[in-house]
Lab assay of single mutants.
Amino acid sequence: SGVNQQQLQQLMDMGFTREHAMEALLNTSTMEQATEYLLTHP
Rank of each mutant, 00 (worst) to 15 (best):
11 L>T: 00
30 T>W: 02
29 S>E: 14
31 M>A: 03
37 Y>L: 06
1 S>T: 12
22 M>H: 07
5 Q>N: 11
10 Q>V: 13
27 N>V: 09
37 Y>M: 05
27 N>T: 06
32 E>W: 04
28 T>H: 05
17 T>K: 14
26 L>G: 05
26 L>I: 11
11 L>E: 00
13 D>G: 10
24 A>V: 02
10 Q>M: 10
41 H>I: 10
27 N>K: 12
18 R>F: 09
20 H>R: 14
34 A>L: 04
40 T>N: 14
3 V>I: 13
11 L>D: 00
6 Q>G: 10
38 L>T: 02
27 N>H: 13
20 H>T: 07
27 N>S: 07
36 E>A: 06
1 S>L: 11
34 A>D: 02
29 S>G: 07
17 T>I: 11
1 S>R: 12
21 A>W: 01
20 H>L: 15
29 S>F: 07
7 Q>R: 06
8 L>Q: 03
6 Q>I: 12
29 S>Q: 11
1 S>E: 13
4 N>T: 08
18 R>Q: 09
6 Q>A: 11
39 L>E: 15
30 T>F: 02
33 Q>V: 02
21 A>N: 00
25 L>G: 00
2 G>D: 10
24 A>M: 01
36 E>H: 06
28 T>D: 01
36 E>V: 05
31 M>E: 02
34 A>E: 02
41 H>Q: 09
8 L>I: 07
32 E>P: 03
33 Q>D: 12
9 Q>E: 11
13 D>T: 06
38 L>E: 03
18 R>Y: 10
22 M>P: 00
36 E>I: 06
26 L>R: 10
17 T>A: 15
22 M>D: 02
9 Q>K: 13
3 V>L: 09
39 L>N: 15
11 L>S: 00
3 V>A: 07
12 M>E: 05
23 E>I: 10
30 T>Q: 02
35 T>Q: 14
4 N>Q: 11
8 L>P: 00
42 P>A: 15
42 P>E: 14
28 T>K: 03
14 M>N: 04
28 T>L: 02
37 Y>Q: 12
14 M>T: 04
15 G>T: 01
39 L>T: 14
3 V>N: 06
28 T>Q: 02
27 N>I: 09
3 V>K: 06
29 S>Y: 07
8 L>K: 01
3 V>P: 08
20 H>F: 13
32 E>V: 05
29 S>H: 11
40 T>Q: 10
40 T>V: 06
14 M>Q: 05
25 L>H: 01
8 L>M: 06
16 F>Q: 02
24 A>F: 01
22 M>G: 04
39 L>M: 14
11 L>P: 00
3 V>D: 06
42 P>R: 13
8 L>H: 03
40 T>S: 12
39 L>R: 11
25 L>C: 05
34 A>H: 01
15 G>Q: 03
7 Q>T: 06
30 T>A: 02
23 E>L: 08
17 T>Y: 08
26 L>M: 12
6 Q>Y: 10
34 A>Y: 02
20 H>Q: 09
5 Q>D: 10
19 E>I: 09
5 Q>K: 13
6 Q>R: 10
10 Q>G: 05
20 H>M: 15
36 E>Q: 08
25 L>W: 04
26 L>V: 09
13 D>M: 09
33 Q>W: 03
22 M>Y: 10
20 H>I: 14
30 T>E: 03
38 L>V: 04
35 T>P: 09
27 N>A: 10
21 A>I: 09
12 M>G: 01
27 N>E: 05
24 A>H: 01
6 Q>K: 12
34 A>F: 02
16 F>A: 07
